[in-house]
């Protein structure tokens, strides 16, 4: 009935992309138990770029600082680590569209049928950044995006947002939509993912992170919650630096 070879290939693919690397098991007469978490989070550390080239990284750091510019109270996307976040995401399962349905045929559908593009986020960024750089250099005497002034950068991004610029081999607006999704995710996700450095995004709005227990506060109406945020990695003042 089932083509065993086809299935094995498919199931290997699925297992490789699943966070629960469990095999089929028979469970009876007890609640399965093993000490320690079986699906603990992966923690991204600072360090060299994992996906972006040096030039791409420069452009990305400029882009994330225009999507979320710095102000007097809160750092912008660059210092919050949004480019690092996206770098790690693109190197990981998200960049490869892991877990998504990838069998053909790929047919262009109507809008409400959702994305039918075989282009992965990793390819979208690689090509999107190359196109951005090319367009900037043509229009600005050889200067890439990172070398433009903030105002010039904003107007380039606005032309992409409005659909007045087309990229050669990838959807320009699709690239911009990805930025509008991924950059705020880098600003607001837990710092374990490489962005939201020092929880600056959470401090800006007053989100307490993973404190998890607000029983003392549910009944305190219209009072500002006073405690600073906590991340999955804890807080800096809980984990003193070891010499």
């Amino acid at each position: 009935m089932l083509d065993r070879r086809t299935f094995l290939a498919a199931s290997a693919l699925w297992l490789a992309s699943s966070t629960s690397l469990t095999h089929a098991s028979e469970i009876r007469e007890h609640m399965p138990w093993s000490p320690f978490p079986s699906s603990e989070p992966h923690i991204e550390r600072p360090g060299p770029w994992k996906f972006f080239t040096a030039d791409e990284a420069r452009a990305m750091e400029a882009i994330v600082d225009r999507i979320i510019p710095p102000d007097r109270e809160t750092p912008g996307g660059k210092d919050a680590g949004c480019a690092v976040f996206i770098d790690r995401q693109l190197k990981g399962p998200y960049g490869a569209s892991s877990g998504l349905y990838k069998l053909g045929p790929y047919v262009k559908g109507i809008k409400q049928q959702g994305s039918q593009s075989p282009v992965t986020p990793a390819e979208l960024y690689r090509k999107g950044l190359a196109n951005l750089d090319r367009i900037c250099k043509v229009n600005n005497g050889g200067k890439g995006f990172a070398d433009l002034s903030a105002d010039e950068q904003d107007s380039v991004l606005k032309t992409i947002e409005s659909g007045t610029v087309e990229f050669e081999d990838v959807d320009a607006q699709g690239f911009f939509d990805a930025l509008l999704k991924d950059v705020p995710e880098g600003f607001f996700s837990d710092p374990i993912h490489g962005g939201n450095r020092d929880m600056v995004g959470w401090k800006m709005i007053g989100f307490p992170g993973i404190r998890y227990d607000y029983r003392d506060w549910i009944g305190r109406h219209n009072e500002r919650y006073p405690y600073p945020p906590v991340s999955i990695m804890g807080r800096a003042d809980w984990t003193p630096h070891k010499a």
Partner: peptide, 29 residues
């Protein structure tokens, strides 16, 4: 189960569970 798959130390990971759909069926399946 709770203690091994979503203990309070990391259950509150918006990116992993809400955005990347960690607990759900994968369309690839």
């Amino acid at each position: 189960n709770t203690a091994t798959d979503y203990p309070p130390g990391y259950a509150a990971d918006e990116l992993r569970y809400r955005i990347r759909h960690d607990l759900f069926l994968r369309p690839e399946q």
